[in-house]
């Protein structure tokens, strides 16, 4: 909500320069605290590993032993099954990727434009428009009017825009970006360009944006994560299977698996595998497939995420 009480350049990181400290923790205390953190950190990652193990367990073993950490028989059947029914899965993957990419672009552009305008002292109505955005953080109409507007005024039901537009703008990000622009793009830099007769738009694209890449990247990262993990808008607006994103497919997985089972039984297109549908294993395999992109990219974006959290404050 606001800037922590540290200078903006300080980045929260656990790694600091090693300097001699006569009052370092005692060996025992250090060991205990390390263990505590290690246990908690492991518990945060463990469920994902557990899900991977379950997805690789033979369905008959699951039937007999439940979800165990060391299955008697390993099996790729769940993944083979998902491969056999890949069309819906790929479709959902494509929807999620499309929504994430499009949404992030729209969101960054709209937010950066708005935030830049209200960050400039030349803009006479900046106070009014700051309040116009800020007020939406204090008060909202609630879910029902939002839903009715989206379906009856904007006719978003069962369109891809239902997954993109509701999350495109966010007053909080606008205020963060505004502070960022105020800090990292001071007026003095822009003065000379103005004297040379460059238009405000040209200044924006050629000077301001290149200077603001860290801020823009932060908003883009938050936005990407938000879109990738969103299921709520799909829950409200999407029924068409062709538009169901990955997270939402996971919610409907029981129905989907059942539907696919019956369908393929009828058409007989997937022979062999159809005698036994690896139900729980297949579910967990889906979870793995949906989480993998995050888990793989996580070590790389984590640092930027942490930096981004302290990149700007809401207040001037």
């Amino acid at each position: 909500m606001l800037k922590p009480a540290v200078p903006s350049k300080k980045v929260p990181k656990a790694v600091k320069k090693k300097n001699y400290n006569p009052h370092q923790l005692g060996k025992k205390a250090n060991a205990i605290l390390n263990t505590m953190l290690a246990v908690f950190a492991f518990s945060c990652v463990f469920p994902f590993l557990y899900v991977i193990i379950i997805s690789l367990t033979d369905e008959s073993v699951l039937e007999k032993n439940g979800f165990s950490l060391l299955p008697e028989t390993w099996s790729f059947e769940a993944y083979q099954f998902l491969w056999a029914i890949k069309s819906q899965l790929l479709q959902s993957y494509m929807i999620t990727i499309a929504v994430t990419v499009l949404g992030t672009i729209i969101s960054v552009f709209t937010i950066a434009f708005y935030a830049y305008a209200i960050s400039r002292p030349q803009f006479k109505f900046r106070k009014q428009f700051t309040f116009f955005a800020f007020f939406t953080m204090l008060f909202n109409g609630g879910l029902v009017p939002f839903y009715i507007v989206a379906t009856q005024v904007l006719h978003l039901r069962d369109t891809i825009w239902a997954l993109i537009l509701p999350m495109a703008v966010n007053a909080f990000y606008i205020l963060i970006m505004r502070t960022f622009f105020q800090r990292s793009v001071p007026e003095s830099i822009l003065e000379s360009a103005r004297i040379d007769g460059a238009s405000e738009l040209r200044i924006y694209f050629q000077i301001v944006l290149p200077l603001s890449l860290p801020g823009l990247a932060t908003i883009a990262l938050f936005s990407t994560l938000g879109y990738w993990n969103d299921w709520f808008n799909a829950l409200l607006f999407i029924d068409n299977p062709a538009l169901v994103p990955l997270q939402s497919l996971l919610m409907k997985i029981e129905n989907t698996l059942e539907f696919i089972r019956q369908n393929t039984l009828l058409t007989g297109s997937v022979k062999g595998i159809m005698q036994s549908v690896p139900k729980d294993a297949a579910k967990m395999a889906m979870v793995v497939i949906a989480t993998l992109p995050i888990a793989v990219s996580y070590p790389f974006f984590q640092r930027y995420f942490i930096q981004g959290l302290t990149i700007g404050g809401v207040k001037e």
Binding site: A117, I118, F125, F132, T136, N140, P145, L154, V169, Y204
Partner: peptide
């Protein structure tokens, strides 16, 4: 202020549709 107003326009439209219209609702 037309350049600035143009810049806030997309955001303003969004707020009107997704925040203020529901408030009226």
């Amino acid at each position: 202020n037309k350049t600035w107003l143009l810049m806030v326009l997309p955001g303003v439209v969004w707020f009107l549709l997704f925040s203020y219209l529901p408030m009226f609702g």
